[in-house]
Amino acid sequence: MIELQAVSHTYRIGGQPTLAVRAVDFGVEEGEIVSIVGPSGSGKSTLLSVLGCLLTPDSGVVRIMGKDMSLQSDAAKAEIRRLHIGFVFQSFNLIPVLSAFENVEYPLILAGVAGGERRRRVAALLDRVGLASHQAKRPDQLSGGQKQRVAIARALVAHPRFVLADEPTANLDSHTAGEILALMSQLNRELGTALIFSTHDPKVSAFARRQVRIEDGILLA
């Protein structure tokens, strides 16, 4: 479980403090699909960053799998991300010099999974996201939808308990966005991985079983 208690974080933009999230209490259980909805600048990305252990909030408690993140070293947080959290980014964030296969394989290398097992898992997942025939292609040879499928496969390949997706369909056309959401939903059912994604689009948000809204850094529901 990921649990936030009274989490607040302030950014300084142009020297002015801007409160990104205010006293947020929030939790996600394994296997859930949760959407975080809100307009641009409402604090969605900050909330996901805190949930994903990428950002240490100014105040409040973040517990992942029962561990207080404020007490963890940078290396320990990296290990938690490596083993338990997958990320899907709005701009895909694939490594340009690696093929689709290698991009998906990379988290398994970091996790120390043996070569044979690695190749088996990557091939199976690429097949599952419909990219078996594109595995040797580099990101610049793939379409936006294909890149996001590779990013989803990368996020899931290490069998994390949570996948955090920041506006995963924002750069995709509506048809491809629908396909990507259906795929994520299906993988959630098959693998039991919790899925937390942010969006400003109510139609996309409707894919989630639980929806929370954030405005001006305050979690409304």
């Binding site: 990428l54 990296a78 991300r81 490594i95």
Partner: peptide, 16 residues
């Protein structure tokens, strides 16, 4: 920058 951020996000350590 962005690529390094991605590597860090998916679990690469600072030493890595």
């Amino acid at each position: 920058f962005r690529e390094i951020g991605t590597l860090r996000a998916i679990g690469q350590t600072r030493a890595g």
